[in-house]
Amino acid sequence: MDESKIITQLSIFVNNEPGRLANVCKIIKSVGIRVRAFNLAESAEFGILRAIVENPDDSFEKLREKGIIIRKTDIIAIAVTDAADSFFEAADVLGNAGVNIEYGYFYTGVSDSVLFVRVDDTEKAVDILEKAGIRLLDDAEI
């Protein structure tokens, strides 16, 4: 399995209260983190800001030091030519292999458009997607 095809996403937990998200964004900016893509999700209890950033390990530490509740999450980045077709193709391959997609979000990247996908078995997903000829991006390509 090609480890470079596993991308680190930062999952930042934010209380569902006005101003909390803005506060987190301010901190992200103040410590000089460059965000490439992000997605917002919310549970009944709180919100989760999912971000793809430059230097994720370093950024993770910086944010943790600021008291932000944060987790690293492994995801994969699928190169996209046509949004619907590419998504169908990937979903079909993963589904046939018994891998569940937990969530995904779309990013019109610098060179390629990217579909970020979180699955329940990342390593297996990388293998079967590459075997199926679907192009996965590594950190440098995003």
Partner: peptide, 13 residues
């Protein structure tokens, strides 16, 4: 136990 898995959160609740 903090997780971004919504199902798990709902389950805990």
């Amino acid at each position: 136990y903090l997780t971004e898995d919504m199902n798990k959160l709902a389950e805990m609740s």
